[in-house]
Computed example of a mutant assay.
Amino acid sequence: MHTTKEAAAALNISPTTLGKYVIALEGAGFRFESGKRNVRMFDEKEMATLRQMIETAASEDLPPGQAANMIGQTAYLSLIEDRLSAIEQRQEHLIHLYDNLSSQLARLPAHHIPDYSPPSFFLLPRRKAGFLNFLSK
């Protein structure tokens, strides 16, 4: 974890500029951890995001806010793609399980498949309760 001064020195920018970049990234949806006394602390992942923002702003000649939004959109689309991929993998797994179960059920002899009949208490007539019982007399 890096303090604001350490992070600014590692990124070759001033702490004030780092603060502006952090505010721009927070506006784009990124969250930075705070240590004791509400002091911002930066881990390696956050440092990489800040480096990416600085490089994007320099290469595209964008102000920090627009560079942050561009990085935020890219990160959001990447997250959606990852989640869709995970859903597709789960779906394939479920289809595989369903196919296996169907083939196992098809191989079972008919006399091994139990006949379901509801429990006897479902078949008993229901008694009328309270006021309805009084009215039916």
Rank of each mutant, 00 (worst) to 15 (best):
A8M: 06
A10M: 15
S14G: 11
S14P: 06
T16C: 10
T16Y: 15
L18M: 04
G19Q: 05
Y21F: 13
V22L: 08
I23E: 08
I23Y: 12
I23A: 11
I23M: 10
A24W: 14
L25N: 04
E26H: 10
A28M: 08
G29E: 00
G29P: 00
R31P: 03
S34H: 14
K36W: 11
K36V: 10
R37D: 05
N38T: 12
F42C: 00
D43Q: 04
K45T: 14
T49K: 03
Q52H: 06
I54K: 14
E55V: 06
E60W: 10
D61I: 00
D61R: 02
D61H: 05
L62P: 05
L62S: 01
P63S: 00
G65I: 00
Q66G: 04
Q66R: 09
A67F: 04
I71H: 01
G72W: 07
Y76M: 04
S78P: 02
I80W: 03
D82H: 11
D82P: 01
A86F: 14
A86P: 02
R90Y: 01
E92D: 07
H93W: 09
L94S: 02
H96L: 12
H96V: 03
L97A: 00
N100G: 03
L101Y: 08
L105S: 01
R107M: 14
L108A: 08
P109A: 09
A110D: 11
H111R: 12
D115A: 15
S120Q: 07
F121V: 08
L123F: 14
L123D: 07
L123A: 12
L124T: 14
R126I: 06
R126W: 12
K128I: 05
K128T: 09
A129E: 09
F131K: 06
F131Q: 07
L132G: 02
L132F: 15
L132A: 13
N133G: 00
N133I: 02
F134K: 12
F134E: 08
L135K: 02
